[in-house]
């Protein structure tokens, strides 16, 4: 008797969760309940990171230092080039009377948990509303776009990765500006590009960047690289897949981008 009631209650809750947004105020609290669990399960990882930092031989430290210095030099050179390009870009944009693109502010965050269900591509980061994180904010790693914030708690938030089956984002080909949609397919290493006409100019190796059309993601961040284009004249659309630039299951240190004032 009791089991029937409990099953009915569970089904009601599940349907309310999946099909309505009645539970959304509770979802916010949920991430706060979940956070301590993820923090505890993250302890072994953070300890090994701490140990790596502490017990490093002087030699390897010096080596790393040297490598980092070279990298800084290389990056600085690119930055110098970038500065002149940015200035030129602003001048050209003024000529065209269009608005300047804003410089985005970023916040460094750390992954403290990943979704235990392998078909759900969600991660938990250690920043929340106290740090100004907002729903819909973009998450990057050093290589490219990773996902967007879907739930914000006080000191942690949940991020939906672009490879999740529920996620799609507007992109454009960096080479020619063709606009496309990149959809997740539940595979960490592949994105699907639906509705690509057979005649469209897309080739293997094309870089896809965020187009900013959905007003969700900031413009111009690398998203994926096209890995396969199959044109079958018998089919209406070409089959195109791309590999995400971001290292979905390896990056621990990530960036949250503020492309709008934190107050909103």
């Amino acid at each position: 008797m009791r089991i029937t009631v409990l099953v009915l209650v569970s089904v009601t809750i599940s349907l309310a969760y999946a099909l309505t947004d009645w539970l959304s105020p509770l979802k916010k609290r949920a991430i706060e309940i979940a956070e301590p669990f993820y923090r505890i399960s993250d302890i072994p990882d953070s300890i090994s990171g701490w140990l790596d930092d502490r017990f490093m031989s002087g030699e390897s430290l010096a080596q790393e230092n040297k490598a980092l210095r070279t990298e800084v030099l290389v990056l600085k050179r690119e930055l110098l080039l970038n500065a002149s390009l940015a200035a030129e870009n602003i001048r050209l944009r003024r000529l065209l009377n269009s608005a300047n693109t804003l410089d985005d502010r970023v916040l460094i965050a750390e992954l403290i948990g990943v979704s235990p269900d392998p078909s759900v591509h969600q991660v938990i980061v250690n920043r929340g509303s106290e740090d100004g994180v907002y729903k819909g904010q973009a998450l990057l790693d050093a290589q490219g776009l990773m996902g967007q914030v879907v739930e914000v708690g006080k000191t942690s938030s949940k991020v939906l990765l672009i490879t999740d089956i529920m996620h799609e984002l507007p992109v454009q080909i960096n080479r020619n500006g063709v606009r496309l949609i990149a959809a997740g397919m539940g595979d960490l290493y592949r994105l699907r590009l639906p509705h690509v006409a057979n005649t469209m100019d897309v080739v293997v190796g094309d870089m896809l960047v965020s187009s900013g059309l959905g007003q969700r993601f900031p413009v111009g961040y690398p998203v994926a690289e096209v890995t396969q284009v199959t044109v079958d004249p018998a089919k209406r659309f070409a089959t195109v897949t791309a590999r995400p630039m971001a290292e979905m299951n390896r990056s621990r240190h990530v960036l949250l981008v503020f492309d709008r004032p934190p107050s909103s």
């Binding site: 569970s10 089904v11 599940s14 969760y17 999946a18 991430i31 669990f37 969600q122």
Partner: peptide, 22 residues
């Protein structure tokens, strides 16, 4: 316990709850 697991894992609420109760 199932409901707690649902909340922590972030799946559909009621899923683990129903499964564990059964």
């Amino acid at each position: 316990v199932g409901l707690l697991q649902d909340i922590v894992e972030g799946g559909v609420w009621g899923g683990h709850a129903m499964a564990l109760a059964v």
